[in-house]
C-alpha cells in the first residue's frame, strides 16, 4: 500500500475561543503593609492555579488575566492581557495612598480596548481594598462605567479589614437589589478564600450545571455558601 498523507489537523475551537478577561484592581496602599500584602500575594499565588483548573473545564473559553495595582498612583502590574496558562505571579509591595479612582478609570479604558478585540464573555473584575480612596473616586467610577464591558461585567469587591469604604465598594459592584455584597476578609485565611472564590466562581459558572437564570444569581447563591469568617486574628 502506498504511504498515506497525514490527516490535516483542523482545530476550530482553538482558533476562535471567546475570551474571558479577569481583571484585578489590588490595593497596595501603606495600610496594606505587613501581613496584609503578604496574604494578598499568597492568595493570588494560590488562586491562579485554581483559576487555571476551572478555566480548563471550559475549553471553549480563553481566560486572560490583567492586574492593576494602586497606591499613590495606579498602574498596571500585569498590563498585557495574559493567557492564564502563562501567568506567573510577581509579588506586590505596599506603601502610599489609595488611588482607587484612577485604577478603575484605567480598567475602564482597558475594557474598551478589549472590546475592540476578539469576541468575549462578560469580564470578571475583582477589586480588593482595605481603605478609603484618596483620589477622585466619583470621576473614576464614572469613567469605569462608561465602558459597556464594565456594565456587563461580573464585579466583585473584597473588603479587607474593618476600616473599608463599603459604600464605594457597593457602588463598584452596583448589584441589582444588592444581591451580591462585598466579601469581607477580616483575616488572612478569609482573604485567601475570598480571592479564590471571586476569581474562580464566575469562571466556573460558565461550565457547570445550573438552576439560576444568570451568572449573577448563581454567584449570589454560591456566595451564601462561603463560610462565616473564622475568629482567630482579626485585622
Amino acid at each position: 500500500m502506498s504511504e498515506r498523507p497525514p490527516v490535516p489537523v483542523i482545530t476550530p475551537g482553538a482558533l476562535a475561543r471567546r475570551r474571558l478577561h479577569v481583571m484585578f484592581a489590588l490595593d497596595c496602599s501603606g495600610s496594606m503593609r505587613g501581613d496584609r500584602i503578604a496574604s494578598l500575594n499568597y492568595a493570588m499565588r494560590s488562586a491562579l492555579p485554581e483559576l487555571l483548573s476551572v478555566a480548563e473545564d471550559n475549553p471553549e473559553v480563553q481566560v486572560m488575566v490583567q492586574v492593576m495595582r494602586f497606591d499613590t498612583v495606579a498602574r498596571w502590574h500585569i498590563d498585557e492581557p495574559t493567557p492564564i496558562e502563562e501567568m506567573e505571579w510577581i509579588d506586590l509591595d505596599a506603601g502610599g495612598e489609595t488611588a482607587m479612582g484612577s485604577a478603575l478609570a484605567q480598567i475602564g479604558e482597558a475594557l474598551d480596548s478589549a472590546e475592540a478585540g476578539p469576541r468575549q464573555l462578560p469580564p470578571v473584575i475583582v477589586l480588593a481594598s482595605d481603605g478609603y480612596p484618596t483620589d477622585d473616586i466619583d470621576a473614576g467610577l464614572e469613567q469605569f462605567f462608561s465602558s459597556a464591558a464594565a456594565t456587563a461585567a461580573t464585579r466583585i469587591a473584597i473588603a479587607i479589614g474593618s476600616n473599608t469604604d463599603l459604600d464605594t465598594l457597593e457602588r463598584f459592584m452596583n448589584s441589582p437589589e444588592a444581591r451580591l455584597k462585598p466579601l469581607r476578609a477580616n483575616n488572612a485565611p478569609d482573604l485567601v478564600k475570598s480571592i479564590k472564590w471571586a476569581t474562580t466562581a464566575p469562571v466556573k459558572a460558565t461550565s457547570s450545571p445550573t438552576n439560576a437564570p444568570d451568572v449573577a444569581s448563581q454567584l449570589a447563591l454560591n456566595a451564601e455558601q462561603l463560610e462565616a469568617p473564622s475568629s482567630e486574628v482579626v485585622w
Binding site: 475551537g13 468575549q120 462578560p122 459597556a148 456587563a152
Partner: peptide, 20 residues
C-alpha cells in the same frame, strides 16, 4: 464530530460580549 456548538454561526460571531 465538529468540535463546535451547532447554534454558533454568524449570529454568535457578531456578538462582541456574550451576556445573559
Amino acid at each position: 464530530i465538529f468540535g463546535w456548538h451547532p447554534l454558533d454561526g454568524q449570529q454568535e460571531a457578531n456578538i462582541k460580549i456574550l451576556d445573559t
